[in-house]
Design a protein around this nucleic acid. Structure first.
Lengths: 181, 181
DNA sequence: GTCTATATACAGATAGAC
DNA sequence: GTCTATCTGTATATAGAC
């Protein structure tokens, strides 16, 4: 388990940024290379194809989700509140990986869609023991999906019509009242 | 208010189908023309540019939403239940227009994002009088967004991890208990 | 490891025949 | 109205120099 080369990470950061801000179509290898400050040839040394570049994002997502599941389990406010609170865009590495993967999935990349479904399933499994029943679990998952969807539309930077601050606290309380075991 | 030519509608149908099934990048004028059974030149007679083709989808969306708002207001089960129930993919013209617009929005088309936000606002305005408070309204809107997001990921044809049948009834009951005035 | 140059394919759009 | 032919730009990928 060695630390990956810095240039590789810089390329992935740039690729994610373009995916999030301008969409899948704008996230070309050329644009990614330019944004990462390398040449196209340099990029292709680290990622031999567009597919490999996209797979790099999925790999990153899987790693970050594993970390998040550990934090969720240890969270003092409880997994459901933690899960909902971290479903709003904080622009952290996990948010960016999910948003990027969501762009790839909506562009028809099959692997990205599967990755996203897998991640959602992991979260559902972790939350199930804390929910009243399957309906309550559905509610929690869908509210979280809704929060992400709005983030996905607003591009990650512009705030969407998503509850923040006190409104978010009230929403969490409402969902917990309806869903918590 | 004259009925638009049939070929125009066939082209829009084809464009939406490719957007939904294969993503924005695959929805080229060439592929759209082929799927609609016309030549590229034929398509360009009806829609002079890619922008015009996309605007055609947005126009369609606005018309269908206006119809839906009227049906929602007249619904016997009440607007909230109607809204949630019709948030699951039924593959009707409105679903397809929203999904198509969502693909365009995620591809960075500014007009599509604005259209979607506008539509969401219209629904929220219609539901507000029936919700306990703004938090309850947030809950209803986010559950609906979540349902659409899952549909968007699964491509419109493959069923996503979304409650159906009795599970959907239970979810609607739960949300209404938490949110209905 | 990172670069330039280039091959190949396909996108959007125009011109003009029928 | 609908077609074919073609122009121009740009995407992914390869070859090979440094």
């Amino acid at each position: 388990m060695s630390r990956p080369p810095l240039a590789r990470e810089k390329v992935l950061d740039a690729f994610e940024a373009i995916l999030i801000d301008d969409g899948e179509r704008a996230a070309t290898m050329d644009a990614t290379a330019r944004a990462a400050g390398v040449s196209k040839g340099g990029l292709l040394y680290h990622f031999g194809s567009k597919d490999a570049l996209e797979e790099g994002v999925l790999e990153r997502l899987r790693t970050l989700v594993a970390d998040d599941l550990a934090e969720m389990a240890a969270s003092p406010e409880g997994p459901i509140a933690y899960f909902l609170r971290t479903s709003v865009m904080q622009n952290d590495p996990l948010d960016r990986a999910i948003l990027s993967t969501s762009r790839l999935a909506q562009a028809g990349r099959a692997g990205a869609g599967e990755a996203l479904r897998g991640v959602r399933e992991q979260w559902a499994d972790a939350l199930r023991p804390h929910a009243k029943d399957e309906t309550a679990l559905d509610l929690v998952m869908l509210v979280s999906d809704g929060l992400y969807f709005n983030n996905a539309l607003s591009g990650g930077s512009i705030p969407g019509p998503v509850p923040q601050g006190a409104a978010m606290d009230a929403l969490i309380a409402l969902v917990e009242r309806a869903a918590k075991k």
